[in-house]
Simulated scan of single mutants.
Amino acid sequence: MASAAEPKYDIAVKAVGGKLADCPFCHRSLLTLEEKHVPYTKTFIDFANKPQWLLDVNPAGSVPVMKELATGEWIVDSGTIQDYLEEKFPDPPLGTAEDSPQIGLDVLGKFGAFIKSSPEEAAEKEADLVECLRGLDAHLTAHGPFIGGAAPCATDCAVMPRLYHMQVGTKYFRDWEMPAELAALRQYMDTFMSRDSWKNTYYSPEMVIAGWEAHGIKKLVPAQ
């Protein structure tokens, strides 16, 4: 949600049908803006019809890209945007991507491998995902309630969108849920999702599902 104050930035993000869509990297940047209370506006990008100006700014055509309205400077890539905002707006501190705890960032890859796996690979890929989640749960048990401790850090803004994709995608595509014993991780997700930053940057589970379906992921049909 853009602040009522005069916006300082405009950020281009993935959209479908004029609504914020499922890009976890855009979500990372939006959460960072929200947690730092930086006023901004959003420009929605339809991936089926990318504007030429986006390709001029970033030939890869990926988002997010963020423009400082006062200077016209463009900042490209969610990690670069996160570090830029930390330098420009150090209070409240989130830390940079590099100096924040490096844990949980591989959950998207583990989740993706699981939902893409063949029946022969599924048990191995599931075990890899569970191992990743257990490591994050252990960290939160020792250092929580957030990855950074008492307050969110840069890693929280990067990991929570990935966990959301995992939560929605594993349930829909594999009828699978996190093990019940991962209590600290479950509480962490509930706590973060209750924050205004999450509510202001929310997109529906249907957006997540549609995004993965666009990559060819299909719902598992149980054997008869």
Rank of each mutant, 00 (worst) to 15 (best):
I81G: 03
D91T: 13
I81A: 06
V76N: 06
F89P: 09
L85K: 02
W74P: 07
I103P: 14
G104L: 05
D83Y: 04
D77P: 02
D77Y: 07
E86V: 07
I75T: 04
A70Y: 09
K88I: 06
P101T: 14
E68Y: 11
I75L: 02
L105T: 15
V107I: 12
E73C: 15
I103C: 00
L85I: 06
Q82S: 14
T71D: 10
G95M: 01
F89G: 09
L94G: 02
D106N: 03
A97G: 07
E87W: 00
P90N: 07
D99N: 14
G72R: 09
G79K: 11
P101D: 10
K88H: 07
D83A: 06
D99L: 03
P92I: 06
V76Q: 07
A70H: 12
E87D: 11
L105C: 13
P93A: 10
D99W: 05
A97P: 14
G95P: 06
V107E: 02
T80F: 15
E68S: 10
L94S: 05
E68R: 12
S100A: 12
E98A: 14
L85R: 04
G79P: 07
V76T: 13
A97K: 11
G95V: 03
D77M: 03
D91C: 12
E98Q: 14
G104E: 05
A97M: 15
L94Y: 02
I75F: 09
G79C: 11
G79W: 02
A70T: 12
I75W: 00
W74H: 05
L69R: 09
W74R: 01
P93L: 13
G72P: 11
D91I: 14
S78T: 01
I81H: 03
A97H: 15
I75Y: 08
K88S: 11
V76E: 00
P93M: 10
